[in-house]
Structures are given as structure tokens and as C-alpha cells.
Design a protein around this nucleic acid. Sequence first.
DNA 1: GCCGTTTTCGGCCCGACTGTTTTCAGTCG
Length: 575
Amino acid sequence: MDNRAVEAVLNEIAALLELKGANTFKVRAYQNAARAVGNLQEDVGELVESGEIKSVRGIGKSIQEKLKELHETEELVYLEELRSGVPEGLFEIMTVPGMGPKKTKVVWEELSVTTLVDLETACKEDQVAGLKGFGKKSQAKILDGIEHLELTRGRRLRSQALPQAARLKALLEGVAGVERVEVAGSLRRGRETVKDVDLLVASLEPEAVMEAARDDPEVDSIIGSGATKTSVRLKDGLQVDVRVVEPRSFACALAYFTGSKDFNVALRGMALDQGYSLNEYDLRPLDGSPPPEFATEEELHKALGLAQYVPPELRENTGEIAAAIKGELPTLIEPTDLQGILHVHTKWSDGTGTVDEMVRGAVELGYDYLGISDHSEIAGYANGLSVDRLHRQREEIEAAREAYPQIRIFHGCEVDILGDGQLDLTDECLEWLDFVIASVHMELRQERSKMTKRLVRAMSHPQVRVFGHPLGRKLLKRDSSAFDWEPVLDACVENSIAVEVNGSPHRLDADWVHVRRIRARGVKLCVNPDAHAQATLIDAARYGVCEARRGWASKEDVVNTLDLAAFEKDFLRIG
DNA sequence: GCCGTTTTCGGCCCGACTGTTTTCAGTCG
């Protein structure tokens, strides 16, 4: 257990003690001990073994024994005892401004509030104001605080952060002396959600950059600003870190600030093995000789002994380094590899664009084929289509086919997978359609084995071509459904069904972890936009491809990189 | 629970602020 983990354990004990109303000085003792461990230069485990831990100020006899138990067993009976009966959600409640341990205890005991959502509901129902020690003002302040929490502390979607990153990049590129600006961090790696935006600037005049970052009209508050680093909070709550390095350090700095942390640690280890020390400025020989200079990350990776450059999307230390050394990284799919897209909604169900508008949008994006797939009838909330309405929609699609001969329009449907795995359309209608995407929109929380059976049954239907948004998650809002992937993927193999990589920035589903699993099983992917408006047709290329890349997908893994003839004949089995 | 002795128990950082309560408890930095 490393120092940080031990520090976290001690802090958790302190928080639990506070909640249980323990002596405040006892609480403080644990907080002090946590900080002492956090500040240690040495490994806490080694100090425990050597007995030197007792000379660390803030760690007395009792905490010494707990550290020993932690070190030897990786567990702590005392912590487990404290945890029992204390809902985890209380810790989150304590992050609300104004809600300390005492007040949290009151709402927990008096109103059975155990989560942030509970607390919000209780405030809205005017239950909190009547509690002892609370009033109208504190109730309003708590509601305000919860809203503030969601705005500033939470992660946000990639699609929300990217526009700000692009705006700031352009702003900083206009500053005198700036040679180059790049977005780094998790945004560059293509993560679905991000905590902040990292911008790296190459310049010999850092003060001008710092000033520009602070003076950005979108800045709400300045968190910190020094000679080469400024952190600000924007009006929309997003945190932005701007870091300036000299141009000659840019490649190393870009690698360093792109991460991930685990990837960097692994690279630094490789550097050490070869007699170098790698940091954000350079790759420095340990013998004191002058460091080599790199113009690009590609040169840096090569110097470290990687046969291939590792694209940012793969830098998670999940096998990419070993593969790059052996030259076994796949050539990742590019946005321009997509020849067409499926999964597009129109005004017929819950889209905002007409068939004509969506087709025109796809033509403008240069696609050779487009699949229109509105919801099936049971999706009443989305104005799903009955068999009758599907037939009437066909007339409009025929008209579009005549109007836009440059693109092939397939008429399909996103058919609901019912609770028992049956599809929400007659077999006759399913056969009549050009293609079928089968998705779950209801009963998402089914028990695992039931969900597995349901999906296997759906993927055994011969008319299904695509398994739509398999996880059923909504980023930052709803967790994935639970099911066993192997039998479901087996059914997909059996019927040559592709699993969707849904490019909606709210979904990104299947996610990169499962994309690797799907590919390993020999199942193809279909990268779709799930567009509900003309403007989001590009989401397949803009977000979906990125997610597929993170899952190591190449062009060959994705069915809609096929040209029209192959896609129609081999995948859709038309004609 | 830690520390430091006045060596075995008493002090531990504390003031500003807020809102509730009417003299102060709880939070925060």
C-alpha cells in the first residue's frame, strides 16, 4: 500500500470519526497523521518495517499499530468497524458548502438522508428548514451548494470541454512570442469525460501568456498564477490549466502533460533502464552529458526504444508499450475512413431534422451511404413508428433517393429489444426493412442473467444487423446495464452482427474497454452518430472514431469503412 | 489519539463568519 493510499485510509478514519461525533482532537490526530504520511519522502511501508515510523511526528503508538496492520494485511479491522452502518453517500454530502459532519449527521438521523439526491429532495420538500440548527436560509444555501457542486466539481463531457479548449488555443496562439499551442491531458487522449482542460504553450515570453490566460473574458476566477503556470475557473465552471515551456522542451512537455500518469511512469522506467531521466523538459543522460533535443513526440518515443509511435488515445499503460516495442500496434482507424453511417433519427420519431435535411447533411459530409433508423412503436416517449408509419416514411425516403442520387439511402429502424428479448416489430416488417439496429431502451436494470438471455435472444434474430449502444449508459447520468458479454458476442459472431460504437457524446457506447473485447472476439464494429439533428451527423467521425481508436480499432474492424458495394452486399446482405 | 512533560494527565490553533437563536453551535480557512 503506497503512501497516498495510507493517507486516504487515515483521512477516511478521521471523516468517519467526525460523523460518529468522536472527540475533535482525536479526529485531528488522524488528520495530522494522514498529512504526515502524505509528506513523507520515504515509503511508509519501509518505515513501518524498520520501526523508524515512531520517530515521525504525529504518529503515535495507536496509529503505528494500525499502519503495521495495514502494511502486513492490506486491511484494517478498525476501519471496517467504523464503516459499518455508515452510508457512503454521507461523504459526498459533506462536500456541500455549509454541510460539515455535525449537520450531515442531523439530516441523516432525522430525515434518513444518505445521498446528495436525498438531500436535494429533502430541501425541495422543505423538510430541512425545520430541523434544529437549520433554517430557510441554510436550506436555500444547501440547494445552491449542490447546484454549484455539479457545475464546478464534476467531470464534464468531452463535447462540452472541446469547444472551450479550441477557443483558448486560438486565443493563446494570438499572444506575442507564442510559437505553438496544443491541448494536452485527458482531452488529447480522447477520454469521454474530463475534469479540466490542459493547454501547453511554447514561448520564450511566458509572462505575456500568463497575462492572456488571466485576462480571458470567460474567466470567472483565478485559482493560481505564477511565472509559467496559470489555473483559472471559467464562467461555465470548467477549470483550465495553462503551462508554458521553452520551445526546445515542447515535445517532452507535450508527452509529459498528455499522460496518462501510468503511461508516463512506465516511460520514465524505460528511460532509467537506458541511463536517462525523463521529465517534462528533456530526456537527460544520467552521466551528465547534454540531453538530446526532440522536435516531436515521435522522435522521443523512438529514442526510448519504441518501434512505433504510441498515439495519445492508447496511452493508458494497458499493453500499448509492449506492443509498440514489438511493432505490433494496429494502424488505428481515422475519421476519413468512414464511408457511410447508420443510426440516424428524423422528425418521424424524436429527431429534429426532416429526412431531406439529414440526407443533405450526410451528402455534405461526403458519405456514400446513410441509414435512416427511427425508433420503433413501443418507444412512445420518442414518437416511435408503427408498421403503418414506417410504410409512409418509405415514401419520403423514395423521394429523397430520387433527389440525392449521389448517396445511397438505406431505410432501417432502431428496434426496441423488449424485456424478454423479442423485437418490437413483426418479422414481416423486419424483413422488409433494409437494416435493423436492435437496442435496449427500457428495463435497463434487469437482473444480469435475465438481461444476458434477453440480449442473446435478440442477437439471434436473423434480421438484426447492429447491436445498438450495448451498455445503455448515459455519461455522468446513468450506469451501464449488467450482462455477460461472452454469450452475447457469441450470438453476434453466429449472425454476423456488428456491435455499435455509438458516437453520441452522451453515450460513447460501446466504450473503449469493451471495443477491445469485442474485437478480440472477432466481432465487427459499426461507428454511428445516433444523430437526432443535422448538426450531430458528424458525431460518428468526431467522437465515435476516437472511442474506437481508444479500443485499438483499425479500419478493418469497422463495417462502415467498407465501400458502398461491399457494405450493401456483404454486410447488409441486400441483393 | 498525540505530545510532552510540571512524567501520567491536560492541552491540542483559532478567529471570522453565518444563521439560528437570544448566547452560541457549526463551518471554514
